[in-house]
Design a protein around this nucleic acid. Structure first.
Lengths: 213, 213, 213, 213
DNA sequence: TATGAATGAGTCTTCATTCAT
DNA sequence: GATGAATGAAGACTCATTCAT
């Protein structure tokens, strides 16, 4: 393989290795994945992998890190800029649908679930910095809306989990059965129906009266 | 360890090994789990494990099998005996809440997701015989209710996934973070709210009029 | 290879491995020695070695330990029971000659010198518990004799090093060139001459007068 | 690093690498020493090392060679110019003390002993061309003195080993424990006492009579 | 000449499986 | 039936050496 002399070339190499790593970790799990296969899939030799990452564990951690950070900003942004809770929920589910359908998120989810035991610290951080942050953002939106009498819900922070649940469900489904044509799901329709049910489920009688008026 | 001479004694041994196997497979994943540890946790020696199971893979397969079959009947029964879709949903979520809180289901889910790659056939069968059967049962209930004008939903079979999603979500959460006191979730409240939202989300305007009348 | 079920059989296995380890460590040095070769030389498989020792390092440490302890008692005994310093020196050199000619000491010395860097702690302990103990014992004998006017020496504890030096020299020579017939040395004669020179070098004028009277 | 264009500049590079090599080989042994570290210690890159030496082994061999040759001439000179055997011994031990205290000899000795196995030919040549030459020179001096009735010794060539032994002992001690302040030895005093003991041990009764007359 | 990225053979160690006891 | 000692295949990681730049 040609040599990566510049910083950019090296970053590209890192990325190729991270991509290959996700493939292998997803397909086989952390323990069963072989560094040799990761390197080979990246078109490099085993030794080269170790020029870029200290160990298989470090590779794993950096992979999680690299896939995790990007979307957080977007979540915060949606929470901050949505005029109403119902609107925020539409946008959340739309964004989630997009992520599940086109990003590495589903495969990442599978990997995280399967290998959580190896990286309790990483998982704890992931839960606190990603999951609970997302749940918190959604929960706050619902809470504010509830206090404004805009929606009718029980505990907004529990409800946030119900908003998110179909994302996880779809992601896992996609990751595990996505390869089988018979297991395809129309995710846009699914998230559309999810948004609709949430909307109706949370809307106040007033709104509803108007609704069917 | 004493010898198991009767058939019952042998079945008991098998069960002890299966229990130990779930613990280890859950805690470490299929590849990282060691037969030695499974045997030890079962209070037996490594060699004995091989008297009862042909291999680590066979042990895994039989474990999945043994945990998978039981609850199916109950699902069918709920679907068959519920007077209305809304009632069925209450009972489904109640049952699900119970399963997630008290059965091995959450740990099984984690294991299945994490090690799916090793057993594509098992996973396919699990999807077809368990997941799609459950989804199908729920979907049929919704479909019937819809055709009777009892509820308002889009595709009933997509909607079934929304009914199930929080079960998966909670199960995974439970399995992954259940050990951390700071990550506890009030599952009864969660499923209660889920049932409430679904109810309101699907109910017809008529019902609702009566609701707030 | 047959199985070692009893404790004695296991101890024998350990000893066979230790013997093989000394051979390999001596011939190749710690780093270059391969666990595979040690096991093979012991007539066992690679994996079996790890049933008896935690690691290559542990094997090395236990080897040193096992070869080091035995002779200490004998040294102390000689120091304690010799009627005179000159007599003690005869017996020390006789014992040393014996060790260098027939025991594993020369090969151990070579190993210790060559791989000291890997085991600074072990080496420090070896110096303190073996070397300085031997030097101390000899030094004390000389010191007592000197204070009784029995011998003429400078610092008795420096002199102890001169008593020991030919042992090290011969041991190393033996270990490094012992295989070559052209490098053979008559060790008995060598140590005899050493004893004679020391005797004459340390004896008082009085003794000497009598000597040639 | 700047390029070495002239022959002198290249020789300087070689020497820097040899110095660095001695450090690393001494500290870690041949097998464990890394070419990377040697180059780095020399302020050069790994690749450059291979411009100057064919391989790690060649570097090692040339290192031994370069450290071995120098002092031979001095040995021959002492043997040739000393008026008497007893005088020659004084001068040998003085020179040895100097070497052990200030030259690379102790570290070289450690390296040679530790890694002898890798270079049987080098070791054989070293034994023949250095050790036995030194022993031969000393032995011849003693032999001549003995035949002149100047000293009383057994086999002069065995005795030569006794003359040399404390040099090896001190060298090894220095190399292995020299870093620890608690293991310091007053080498001048040691070699002084050595010379004194040899002198008295070998001198004839006549001399001694004069001695104490 | 000098560099250091790339390579892959080589080594320690683990662990599923076998089988003598 | 039960045991655990023995085996050896497999995998993470290192490092001498090469060679494109």
């Amino acid at each position: 393989m040609k040599r990566a002399r510049t910083e950019e070339a090296k970053d590209a190499r890192r990325q190729v290795l991270l991509d290959a790593a996700l493939d292998e970790f997803f397909e086989r799990g952390f323990t069963a994945a072989r560094t040799h296969d990761i390197a080979e899939r990246a078109g490099l030799s085993k030794g080269t992998l170790y020029l870029y990452f200290d160990s298989k564990e470090a590779l794993f951690s950096e992979l999680i890190e690299s896939l995790t950070s990007p979307n957080l900003a977007r979540i915060d942004e949606i929470a901050a800029t949505s005029p109403s809770a119902l609107d925020a929920i539409d946008r959340f589910t739309g964004f989630a649908s997009h992520l599940v359908r086109t990003s590495d998120l589903p495969r990442l989810m599978k990997v995280l679930i399967g290998d959580s035991q190896h990286f309790p610290e990483t998982m704890k951080r992931y839960r606190e910095e990603v999951l609970e942050r997302v749940l918190g953002a959604i929960g706050s939106v619902l809470e504010a809306a509830k206090s404004r009498g805009e929606i009718v819900v029980g505990d907004p922070h529990l409800t946030a989990r119900l908003v998110i649940a179909p994302v996880l469900f779809s992601g896992i489904w996609q990751a595990m059965f996505g390869a089988d044509p018979k297991a395809q799901v129309d995710l846009e329709a699914l998230f559309g129906e999810h948004a609709r049910l949430l909307r109706r489920g949370m809307e106040t009688a007033d709104v509803r009266d108007g609704d069917h008026a």
